[in-house]
Simulated scan of single mutants.
Amino acid sequence: MKIEMWSDYVCPFCYMGKRHLDIALQELHLTDEVDIEFKSYQLNPEIPAYSGEGMQELLSKKYNLTLEEAENNLREVQERAEKVGLYYDFEDMKPTNTLDAHRLTKYARTLGKDQALAEKIFKSYFEKGGLISDHDELLTLCKDVGIVKSQAYELLSDPNIYQEEVRRDMAQAEELKIQSVPFFRINQDYVIPGSESIETFVLMLQKIIRETS
């Protein structure tokens, strides 16, 4: 079974969606039976590496909310995440550009380490206040999953490496009319848009197994 997941590393619902999928696969004993491919998507490709602006301010400006309203919205997201064992630290979160993180994930896939790296990047950003556009941070995460530091450094030093692959994913998302992430496509025929519940993933996966067996 092939599962493609369009997502961005600064999307709180993408991390939740990934966790929901992981739990559903575990429940169905399918974890080792599927090939999950992370497809690149940038919610804001023009955002700088880091402006110093926090999540509350960013959300307030984007949706014309008061800071109190923005904080309440973020608190609701935190509570949803906690239900599946994710602990978002919006106070220390650093909104940033994700192109390099996506490029590294493309490289990690060639090594069979993309799943582990993606989890590390998500956790760094949402739970540890990591600046995931910073090359030192990314190199540390690569080392944690067994990627040779010198090879990762070479990639990060050349902005052209894997950039075309990232752009291709985003162009494909446009062709598929993907307007929000996460977005899951299974065996190129079945679609799960959004961070649906674990139950929804389980039911869809069971349906696919029945119809393709």
Rank of each mutant, 00 (worst) to 15 (best):
S150G: 08
K149Y: 13
A108D: 04
A173I: 07
N160T: 15
E137N: 14
V181S: 02
L131F: 08
H135F: 14
Q172F: 11
E119L: 13
F184D: 05
D136W: 06
P159T: 08
L138F: 04
E164M: 13
G130R: 02
R167W: 10
R185K: 14
E174Y: 11
Y107C: 07
R168A: 14
I121L: 02
R168N: 15
Q188R: 14
F183R: 01
Q179I: 11
I121V: 10
D169C: 07
L139R: 09
R103Y: 08
N97L: 05
V181A: 06
H102C: 03
D144E: 15
Q188W: 10
V181R: 00
D92T: 14
N160H: 15
Y125H: 12
V191Q: 09
L99D: 04
I132W: 00
Y125P: 00
D158S: 11
G146Q: 06
F184G: 03
E174P: 06
E165H: 10
P182H: 04
K143L: 12
S180R: 08
N187Q: 12
P95W: 00
Y87H: 15
D169I: 05
Q163A: 13
A101H: 01
D134M: 04
L155I: 15
S195W: 02
K113P: 04
F90W: 11
I121Q: 01
N187D: 12
D100T: 09
L138E: 01
S180P: 04
K128I: 00
Y162M: 05
T140I: 10
A101M: 04
L104M: 10
A173P: 08
A152S: 03
L176E: 12
Y162W: 08
Y125W: 08
R168G: 09
P193Q: 06
F122M: 05
F183K: 00
A173G: 12
I161E: 11
Y190F: 14
R103G: 06
K113F: 07
L139D: 02
R109Y: 09
F184R: 03
L131I: 09
R167G: 07
K120G: 01
T96R: 04
A116S: 15
P95A: 03
P95S: 05
P159Y: 04
I132Q: 00
D144V: 09
S195Y: 05
Y190N: 07
L156F: 09
D158G: 08
F126P: 01
D158Y: 08
I132P: 00
E137T: 15
K113G: 05
I121Y: 01
G129L: 07
Y190I: 02
D169R: 04
